[in-house]
Design a protein around this nucleic acid. Structure first.
Length: 111
DNA sequence: GTGGTGACGTATA
DNA sequence: GTATACGCCACCA
């Protein structure tokens, strides 16, 4: 399994995020068994640039829908634009209707 | 091997 | 409800 590494664990889940949806670090962390290690999730996404297939890190935000990792895309607005490209509205670096667009990785992986 | 850091989340005052 | 402190654990020096 290529998911033996912690990073790929995160990548695998993030890539499961459907288009036009978003999720939180905590949800991903719990899905991979990290639970309170939500910080490691974002850390992994920061270096997702060397992962393949590419990881839609722009679909991952904090638990309030805030685009905290926007700076990891090279531009402070790139993350928001990528989301808008998929139909996700973003205001003030914050996802609109986050609760509605929220996607639970465990709800799919768990079957 | 030890110390510091971090795209977060939870608990406490 | 707002503000502060802690924990969590993998990566880097």
């Amino acid at each position: 399994m290529n998911s033996n590494n912690f990073y790929e664990r995160v990548y695998d889940i993030v890539r499961q995020i459907p288009e036009g949806r978003v999720t939180s670090y905590g949800a991903i962390a719990r899905a991979l068994g990290a639970g309170g290690s939500s910080r490691m999730v974002g850390y992994a996404l920061q270096v997702c640039g060397g992962a393949y297939p590419p990881v839609p890190a722009h679909r991952v935000v904090n638990r309030v829908g805030l685009l905290t990792g926007k700076r990891a895309f090279g531009s402070p607005t790139m993350m928001a634009q990528l989301l808008e490209n998929e139909g996700v509205s973003v205001t003030d670096d914050q996802v609109v209707d986050f609760d509605r667009l929220f996607w639970d990785p465990g709800g799919v992986l768990g079957g």
